[in-house]
Structures are given as C-alpha cells and as structure tokens.
Write a protein that binds this DNA or RNA. Structure first.
Lengths: 149, 149
DNA sequence: TTTAAATAAGACAAAGTTGTCTTATTTAAA
DNA sequence: TTTAAATAAGACAACTTTGTCTTATTTAAA
C-alpha cells in the first residue's frame, strides 16, 4: 500500500466534505456513517487535517468540520502530507537510507520516474475536482457501490 | 512503502545470491551478515522463495541456498510475488474493493498508469542484471555504502 | 440555565508486521 | 559414528498501525 489507511480515509473524508456545499459544518459522525469509517478513528485523522491547516473544526452543537480554504485549491498531495507526512514519496523502494544521495539502489531511477509521475498527479488533482466527478457519478469513494458517493 | 520489508530483504538476498557465482550453496547466515538482515527473519523469507520455486535449499554442512533456475531468467516481479503475493500491484490506491470492475475510485486511472509502468519494469529487470550493476559498482544493496555490495 | 450535540485528548485493545529464540532435523566431514 | 553446520518449523516478543472507548470540554438551542 503506497498510502496508509489513515491517509485513504482522510482523502475520502475530504472529498465528502467538498460534496457538502451548503456552508454548514459537517459532523465527523455524519462522514463516518456515510463513508463507513470508524468514527473515533476518523476524528483522529481529521485532527491531523486540522493541524495541517486544511480543515477547521468547531465544537458543540451545530459544530463539525469545514474547509479552512477553498477546496478548489486543495490538492490530494496536501492531504497526504498532512496525514502521512512529508517523506511518503521520498523513501527508497528498497528501504536504503540516502539512496538518492549516496550510491543508489538498483531500482532508484525506475522508482524515481514512477513516483514523480504520481506526485505530479497528486499535486494537480484537487479535492473539488474529485468531488465533481463523484457528483456526476463517474467515480465512487465508498466501498459499496453507493449511488450517492 | 509499496513493498513490505520482507519483500525488500528477499530482493536484496536474491541479488546477493546471484553475485555468488561459484556454484556453491550459500548459507543464510552469510547473506544475513553481509546484508545486515536478521538471520532468523531472513530464513523465513527464504523459505517463501523456496516454496515459490525461485531458490532451492539444502540442509546440513555445506548446505545453504542456490537458485532453482538461472537468475538470468528470474525477474524482480517473481520475487515480489513469491513474498508479498499476487495482488500487491492490483490493490486500489484508495482501498476500494473491485475498483477496476465496479465504478472506479477517483484516482483509478492515474494509479493504474503508474503501477503499470512499475510492473513492466519489475517484469523486465532480472536478478542477474542487478547483480551485474552491483559488481560494476554502480548501485548498492546494503544500507551502508559498502564497497562490496 | 440546562441539555444535547459536537470535538479534543488520550488510554487501551486488536491486528499485522517485523524480529528473536528454541527445538528438531538433515547432511557432510572428521 | 560422532560432530558441527546448516535449514525447517513454529512459538513468542516487540513494534506499528488500526480501531475502540471513556472522559473532558465547548457550544447552540431549548
């Protein structure tokens, strides 16, 4: 798995949040139920998105989550970094330290190319763009083939 | 991490084995010491390579490991499959089941392209080719910048 | 002001992966 | 035939990730 499960959940939750355009704060409970993700686990993940400056949260009744910035300008990469940290994509495929700097591992160049193309895509694709695709029914973010998400 | 640590160790061990061209059986102990991999952990991994038909092992004095077939014809992919199983490369990036069959996840196409190119490379690159690169000193398979491997 | 709805924080459990150790078995060589 | 060198097998420990639960705190609305 290139991405951790936490990261996957975070991406799906962000897309869900972007689907909700009425300006209200969305409770984690609602997200967890609709996406079938463990509530408490998801709250922890969302705290990372909060401290990463991607979403903001408000406690209490009518509280919940909202984007800190326009999700039009939030890339998938930002979410990955907020949750899995900055070096998910800079690790050597064979786990060798300083692979790029010292003598490289045998798969360095091939892996570098592949990971660069993934990184480019993750930087380009915004949360909003994915939400739009979900809206038009082209893709899904739930495990079951749910007509809504 | 795209590959498990077991898988990484397996690849490195296979390359080490390919470096040893004198026809003798190589003890796991020697591999583990030279590559700085836990001996018992490595024996387990090598058992997977054995049951996967990649190497053969002989017990007792002068025993050890040897390739079952010419490492000229053993691809990295075969090693990955023997250790991490067959669907390491067919998992959905967002963990959705049947992503390719049912309505896909939002990153399906992008991920599919990237993973295809990695798969092609893994299928093309042989254990021997890597061993040759290690011999000529272009790449390394150890954590420290060891002049030998 | 009280209550219900919400996040925050962190302890804890479960599961998976990684790593260690012990015992049994096999084999070549002394 | 005995011994030392090797793998086989699997129990078990440590660590990491994932998931559950409880308590505290905050906030809007009744």
């Amino acid at each position: 798995m290139l991405l951790s499960k936490s990261c996957i959940y975070g991406i799906r939750a962000a897309v869900y949040l972007a689907l909700n355009r009425n300006g209200k704060y969305v409770p984690v409970r609602e997200i967890s139920e609709n996406l079938d993700i463990s509530f408490h686990f998801l709250t922890k993940i969302c705290r990372k998105l909060s401290s990463g400056g991607i979403i903001k949260s408000i406690k209490g009744a009518q509280g919940g989550l909202k984007f800190e910035r326009d999700p039009e300008n939030i890339s998938i990469m930002e979410i990955v970094i907020a949750i899995d940290g900055n070096n998910r994509f800079s690790e050597c495929l064979l786990g060798l330290p300083d692979c790029g700097i010292l003598k490289p591992c045998p798969l360095h160049d091939d892996w570098f190319d592949a990971i660069e193309s993934i990184k480019e895509k993750f930087n380009d694709i915004t949360v909003n763009r994915i939400a739009e695709e979900v809206r038009t029914g082209n893709v899904r973010i739930t495990e079951i083939n749910n007509p809504d998400f």
